[in-house]
């Protein structure tokens, strides 16, 4: 997954909170497909309909601020989001994203340079984002290798099992 090319299907501004993503009042189930249905309901009720598998979500500063609820990242991913590119992320959301296999790319300048419908190519190792629709490019600090590996294996969970096995081998 060194390079990903897809379409920007949704765009948000600054300080989108985990309450926006999965508001407690709407949660009736923790199932990914259920939380996806309520994702962003208070701020963009059309979000689940707009986002489709493989879609790119672009946002402003401090994306995912607020609570540590992992349902927020699960909902964004289950709605179809392949990758979130934001000006900056709140730290718990950022970690949660990689932990469930949703890459979060911090790319200053992305919000103003991108519109819904743009065709984007993300070159993960090079730290480069090419906007094929507009013919522009932006740079970002490449994702640390350990987090990149986490995305490749599908999140943190498989690595917990790996670490447990390693530990039991060492003690045997």
């Amino acid at each position: 997954m060194n390079t990903y090319r897809g379409k920007v299907l949704s765009k948000f501004g600054d300080n989108i909170s985990t309450d926006d993503m999965t508001s407690a009042k709407y949660i009736t189930s923790h199932e990914p497909k259920e939380v996806a249905k309520i994702c962003m309901r208070d701020i963009d009720p059309e979000f689940p309909a707009k986002m489709a598998p493989g879609g790119i979500l672009v946002a402003g500063k401090n994306f995912g601020c607020g609570s540590s609820r992992e349902t927020a990242t699960i909902a964004v991913k289950a709605a179809g989001t392949q990758v979130v590119i934001a000006e900056s992320f709140a730290r718990i959301f950022y970690r949660n994203g990689f932990n469930i296999g949703l890459p979060c790319v911090e790319c200053p300048g992305i919000h103003d340079a991108t519109d819904v419908g743009d065709e984007i190519e993300i070159q993960y190792s090079e730290g480069k984002i090419i906007n094929h629709t507009k013919g522009t490019a932006l740079e970002f600090v490449p994702i640390p290798e350990s987090l990149f590996h986490q995305i490749e294996v599908g999140g943190l969970f498989p690595l917990i099992r790996e670490k447990l096995e390693k530990r039991s081998k060492n003690t045997n």
């Binding site: 609570s67 992992e70 970690r95 949660n96 469930i100 943190l156 917990i160």
Partner: peptide
């Protein structure tokens, strides 16, 4: 500090 559920599993 606060962490997510999968990290708590870890």
């Amino acid at each position: 500090t606060g962490i997510g559920s999968t990290e708590m599993c870890n």
